[in-house]
Amino acid sequence: NTTQTKKKRKNRFADETERVFLPNMPTNISSNMTEQQQKIYILQVQIEELTRRLKMNDLGIPANVEARSPSPEPIYDQQGKRQNTREVRARRKIEEQRHQLVTELLVLNPDYKAPSDYKPQQAKYID
């Protein structure tokens, strides 16, 4: 039934059981917030969600091997241990995303306290 599976595309909503709970950050918010407050709050939610994913090791690596992107050439350290594993690359990607969001939020709210595990990235990312 290829035609049926093609017709029935996947809804972007994840299953009801996969609900995200962020400590101290309710996902139902007051309608009295200003545009600016809302923007700041959403950025915080996005940052907290990435922090949660890093903590829970929820790196978004597809379980299905075929769905994964091709790996770059391996890089080894002096002990011969691989440096750029899929996990390492996925973490780095999330950390970079979070760094972008923290940077954006600090512009809107200079008093913002970044997550405790957040380290500002001084080094420019070299592709």
């Binding site: 909503f13 009801e16 996969e18 962020l22 139902n28």
Partner: peptide, 21 residues
Amino acid sequence: AQQALTGRKFANRVVVTSYYD
């Protein structure tokens, strides 16, 4: 709907809900 959708993932983003006037 609010209770069912809040905190759910949509395209891997966390759904935030708010009632509107």
